[in-house]
């Protein structure tokens, strides 16, 4: 029961920062699987069912540009931060740093 609750709350906590993580990773172009690997290597493990639809939604909102490319005999859709996405990322980063600093102070309190 406690583990379930922890999993649920952990999921909620992570969901909020996923957008930031994805936008930040897509400063460089990535296709779906390579983006997932990059996030995994950075310590952010997101399952496919969450990541790929999220990337698609961000692209539909105009925050990412996408392009189909042929590589290794197969086609892949590469995503990269758009101008609008870049502006939003900057604002979200400032917001995150402010929040992180405030939260850090709170968590350090005895």
């Amino acid at each position: 029961m406690t583990e379930n609750r922890l999993d649920k709350m952990r999921g909620e906590l992570r969901r909020g920062v996923l957008v930031l993580a994805v936008l930040s990773s897509l400063k460089q172009p990535h296709y779906g699987y390579s983006l997932r690997k990059q996030l995994q290597d950075a310590g952010i493990d997101i399952d496919e069912g969450t990541l790929y639809p999220l990337v698609r939604r961000l692209a539909e909102q105009g925050l990412l540009d996408s392009e189909w490319q042929q590589a290794e005999g197969r086609e892949r859709r590469y995503y990269q931060l758009s101008t609008l996405g870049g502006e939003l990322l900057q604002q979200l980063t400032e917001e995150w740093q402010q929040l992180n600093g405030a939260l850090g102070n709170l968590l350090e309190q005895p």
Partner: peptide, 16 residues
């Protein structure tokens, strides 16, 4: 479009 993209993700994962 989604089928094409999903296929690409799946094939990448299986290839890996």
């Amino acid at each position: 479009d989604i089928g094409r993209e999903l296929s690409s993700h799946l094939l990448d994962q299986l290839e890996s």
